[in-house]
Every structure is written in structure tokens, then in C-alpha cells.
């Protein structure tokens, strides 16, 4: 067993970000360094409670000496690096990545995208009108390696009907950017349930249970930790989904109350989201020592003792 004193003290390094020389701890991500400087670096797949997956590639920056751009979220700070966060190459890549995402995924509930589109002059409509949405389960049945013949006059999308197969939450994969956060939260990084995985390949890649079985037949334990990390609203509590569907979702009428979960002795912090005197969501702060934003089914969905569940209107 090593004592604290035996561990190597992290080294300080100096690097330059957009001409400003900054001292950072070796191994910190360039993203953290930039944020420390107040330099905004847009990102979608980065989560503060998860290992960086660097899948979205919006956070790319230019690093002198590198042939390609590098992802700020997962490139560690090193001595002498020269970083450019707003060069022409960076701006082009961010613009096109935003266009690629915006043209293929419904980003209407993704925070920040509108402002980024403006900042990088991204025009997701440039690829033409969107292709017709896929039918239920159609994208899940795509065969890997089999070429999908699309109509080139429309832009292929991941649009498809939402998967509603349980009373607690909804999976609307037409909003999924494949950031892998739900998979990591469900799997080895938090819940260790492994109910979902990325499946398929390329543009047909999607988040799925085995053979696309309903969540009720899967290993899902309804902790909702996937909802907590989803950056695009693809995963959403049924309460919120129904309110939105009925046009009654009103963040301006909502307030949050922090409390401690009363179900067991762990002491998870709950943030209760209330609209019109009705609980609409329960989350936990991602910087909380105990939960790191995670809860169990009781904490996240077990508020029926406070209010009876809403009756879903059958489609």
C-alpha cells in the first residue's frame, strides 16, 4: 500500500492557448485547460462524470505539430503545446460537424446548438431536404455490410418513431447523436447493468438492447442514469415526454428543490423538478460526492407516494 506521500506529484506544465501562456497540471485535458481560461470549446459527448469518448468531434482544436486536429476533451496537456481553438481549420471542422449532426439528428432539445450554429455559420439544411423517417424498428434491422441505397436528393437521417415500451422513460433515437454516454453510464462506468450497447456499424450504428428487445425484456433496472447523461433529450422521463407532447412543458413555470432521498440510508441528494405543483422529473447533482448524478429506480421514479402516476393517454 502506498501512502499519499509516495505518489508522484503531478507535474506542472506550460502551454499556449490562442497565444496565452498558461500553467496547467500535466494530464489535464485541453478542454479543462481551455475552460479554466474562459475559452469556450463546444462539446456534446463530453460528460463531467464519465471518461471522455471523443465521439462528437465538436471540441477539436489545432495543436501545432499534429497532422490532424485533436479532440480537446481527451488530449492531455503537455509541456510546450501550442493550441489554437479558433483557427480557420478548427472553425471549418466545427461548422461541418454541426451541419452533419444537425442534418441527420433532431437537435431541437440540445442545449447550446443554436448558438454554436450561429457562431460557426453552420447551415444544416445545405445537404437538401431530410429523407423520410424510418419505420418502427427499421433501423434496428439494417444488416451490417449491406449497402443501404438511399435517395441522394434527400439527406439521410436517423429519424424514427420514439420507442415507448415501459411506463418510466422513453427512448427517442431520432434525437440520438451516438455520444455513447448512456452506454457508459449503464455499463462499466456506473450502473454495471449493460442493458444497452452500440450496435450495427457506420450510419446504421445505434444504441440498442440485444436484438432490439423491449426494455422490459432487457436487463434494464430503470435507474434512469442514462437519462441523466443524455445531452440531446433522446432519453427522457415519460412524465416529461407526455407533457411536451401535450404542449404543456413549461420550464419557466418550474422550480427545483434539493432534498435527500428517504428510501434508504445512502443519502443521495435529489433535485426535484416541479411544475404547477407537480413533480415532473427527479435528478441528482452530477457533482454530488455520493451520487455523481446517479440514482436508482426508487430515487428517480419512486415519487408515486407523493403524487399518483399520470394516466397515459393511449396512442
Amino acid at each position: 500500500m502506498t501512502s499519499q506521500g509516495d505518489e508522484a506529484t503531478p507535474r506542472s506544465v506550460q502551454l499556449s492557448v490562442d497565444g496565452t501562456v498558461v500553467t496547467a497540471t500535466e494530464g489535464d485535458s485541453l478542454l479543462a485547460v481551455c475552460r479554466g481560461l474562459g475559452v469556450e470549446v463546444p462539446t456534446l459527448c463530453y460528460g463531467d462524470t464519465l471518461t471522455a469518448r471523443n465521439a462528437c468531434r465538436i471540441c477539436v482544436v489545432e495543436l501545432d505539430g499534429n497532422r490532424t486536429l485533436v479532440p480537446a476533451c481527451s488530449r492531455p496537456a503537455e509541456e510546450g503545446q501550442v493550441v489554437h481553438t479558433d483557427s480557420a481549420r478548427v472553425r471549418t471542422s466545427r461548422k461541418v460537424v454541426l451541419e452533419l449532426l444537425g442534418s441527420s439528428v433532431d437537435l431541437s432539445l440540445t442545449k447550446g446548438v443554436e448558438a454554436w450554429n450561429e457562431r460557426y455559420e453552420a447551415d444544416p439544411s445545405r445537404f437538401g431536404p431530410s429523407a423520410a423517417p424510418a419505420g418502427i424498428g427499421e433501423r434496428d434491422r439494417r444488416v451490417t455490410g449491406e449497402h443501404h441505397h438511399a435517395d441522394p436528393l434527400t439527406a439521410a437521417t436517423v429519424a424514427q418513431p420514439a420507442k415507448i415500451d415501459n411506463p418510466l422513460y422513453v427512448r427517442d433515437y431520432s434525437k440520438c447523436i451516438l455520444c455513447f454516454k448512456c452506454v457508459d453510464a449503464c455499463g462499466e462506468q456506473w450502473q454495471n447493468t449493460f442493458a444497452i450497447s452500440a450496435a450495427g456499424r457506420g450510419f446504421d450504428a445505434r444504441i440498442a438492447t440485444e436484438f432490439d428487445v423491449a426494455l422490459t425484456d432487457s436487463a434494464c433496472v430503470y435507474c434512469g442514469n442514462c437519462i441523466a447523461v443524455c445531452p440531446t433529450g433522446a432519453l427522457m422521463s415519460t412524465a416529461e415526454f407526455d407533457l411536451r407532447g401535450a404542449g404543456n412543458w413549461a420550464p419557466e413555470r418550474q422550480h427545483e428543490t434539493t432534498t435527500v432521498c428517504s428510501y434508504c440510508g445512502v443519502g443521495c441528494n435529489l433535485t426535484v423538478h416541479v411544475q404547477d405543483n407537480e413533480i415532473v422529473n427527479i435528478s441528482s447533482p452530477s457533482d454530488h460526492d455520493v451520487t455523481h448524478g446517479n440514482l436508482c429506480i426508487k430515487g428517480r421514479f419512486g415519487y408515486v407516494n407523493v403524487q399518483p402516476p399520470r394516466r397515459r393517454v393511449k396512442d
Partner: peptide, 23 residues
């Protein structure tokens, strides 16, 4: 398009947009 692994956005969607434009 067929061989992209689908992990990162530039390649996953870019190869699709590239094929559409060529077609």
C-alpha cells in the same frame, strides 16, 4: 459509408453526405 465504424461524427455522417453528393 459501409465500412465506417460509426464512432465519430465526421466519418459516420460525412461518408453518407459524400456518397449522396457523388450520386
Amino acid at each position: 459509408r459501409d465500412e465506417s465504424c460509426g464512432q465519430c461524427v465526421p466519418c459516420r455522417v460525412g461518408t453518407v453526405r459524400q456518397e449522396e453528393a457523388i450520386l
